[in-house]
Design a binder for these strands. Structure first.
Lengths: 244, 244
DNA sequence: GTTCTACACGAACGCCGTTCGTGTCAAGTC
DNA sequence: GACTTGACACGAACGGCGTTCGTGTAGAAC
């Protein structure tokens, strides 16, 4: 026995009574879009099956006809996000290291644009079509710069790992509705904590309280790590004795 | 009205009916130890409040008298794990880069020794006593090697980030009760997938199918990233024109 | 008009973190 | 010794989660 006929909009006259044109049929694309909307609005934890269903005027159970489980949905959402990556049109051997940096910066920017979605990317080998596009571009640039095959291959893991882990760490500051003022206060507090540590056991931390807490929340810290990585890669890429 | 008097072991005669000698009183240390036992046995997801309580012959609710919430418990467990770090006795300026590597290797090894606990460390600024000890040692070594303050300070974040993120990625292979044979098969499958990609759109990935999937599960991949990082740091540490 | 099939979806299962109220023990007080 | 007190152990319950199941219906096929 049906519990009670639900109200259906658009009833009355001879109008073909669909409950919406079969809800635009609820397909993978609309589900992924809805899930991404939820993430953008309220973060990764808010992306529950029920909540995504709600976004489409239905329940969580309805999604399972189109998506195997929540993990697969997350994978689809992530590849959608990776699709926003801006990649160089063509590798330029003279600018390879700058092009690598641009790609990694774009990764960070894209992830940062979707709340804490970076957390969902951690520990996930990205094999979606858009991820492959990114990997291909990254390798192309590095190979054009003369990096050996194995270096380029490993770096193709290492660089996104850095972008993702950094984006995740930064999303923690950005979330929890912390205002920039709060953040500044929190950083100041941490600096004071470091500076006040007993200098017999923690002389270096106490001495570097300033540098340790510098650049949090800005680009400087990220650029530092990026520079370290690219310099390290460059040092592995030079052909033996490149000087004339 | 009590729902029904519970059975208590050790009743009958004049024996002092304790329910165990007040369970050794259930303190923070025993709870942290129990939680770590659960993680070691069945991974981070198994570390639920109920399960940890069970490990101590009680329920999950009993833990809240000693620990604010699950997150605080995890923080305590993590600092306990970090306490296992092996640190150099004294910084040696001639071996600074090797000492840095040894510390980061130790981080990876310690994390790998506790299933997927690395996942819990991601995005967490470690400020426990043991974490501070590790940071102090790391900075000491880098400073002895002549790295500038700001470089040492940023690297003090960057290096543990690498160790943690790598340990997490590796824990995924190690878990899910994948046998080494399965893993080898999975890697072979991925290599074949890369190699079979359309060469018009993915020429580099297809060409590097071998290198891309090499060294998974071994130390080689980890050592590569470590080498890149330390080389990059070294390139930032040289005093201007160190040549005679 | 009838049959068939795909799928929307409410309800339910077994988890989770956490809170609440009760009950019990050990120590302090007369 | 009787009583009070306070710390804390802990069963039960709340709301939320991912996922499964069974039902019912809309639309296509015949």
């Amino acid at each position: 026995m049906p519990p009670a006929p639900r109200f259906r909009p658009g009833g009355l006259a001879g109008e073909p009574r669909r409950r919406a044109p079969r809800r635009a049929s609820l397909n993978r694309d609309s589900i992924v879009a809805a899930a991404l909307r939820v993430v953008d609005a309220d973060g990764l934890d808010a992306m529950t099956m029920r909540r995504v269903g709600q976004e489409l005027d239905t329940g969580g159970a309805s999604l399972y006809a189109h998506v195997a489980n929540k993990d697969e949905l997350l994978e689809l959402v992530i590849d959608q996000v990776i699709g926003e990556l801006e990649l160089p049109d063509a590798p330029d051997p003279d600018r390879w290291s700058e092009q690598v940096k641009e790609i990694v910066r774009s990764m960070r920017a894209v992830l940062a644009g979707h709340k804490d979605i970076a957390r969902g990317c951690l520990g996930r080998i990205p094999l979606g079509p858009n991820a492959l596009r990114g990997s291909e571009a990254l390798i192309a640039v590095m190979k054009s710069g003369g990096l050996p095959d194995q270096v380029a291959a490993y770096a193709c893991d290492l660089l996104p790992l850095y972008a993702t882990a950094t984006a995740y760490e930064e999303s923690l500051y950005a979330s929890a509705q912390i205002t920039p003022t709060d953040l500044a206060g929190y950083i100041a507090e941490m600096r004071a904590y470091f500076a006040a540590l007993p200098t017999d056991r923690f002389p270096h931390i106490a001495a570097l309280a300033g540098p340790l807490t510098a650049g949090s929340g800005g680009d400087e810290r990220f650029e530092f790590g990026l520079d370290v990585l690219v310099r390290g890669l460059a040092s592995l890429g030079l052909r033996p004795d490149p000087r004339p």
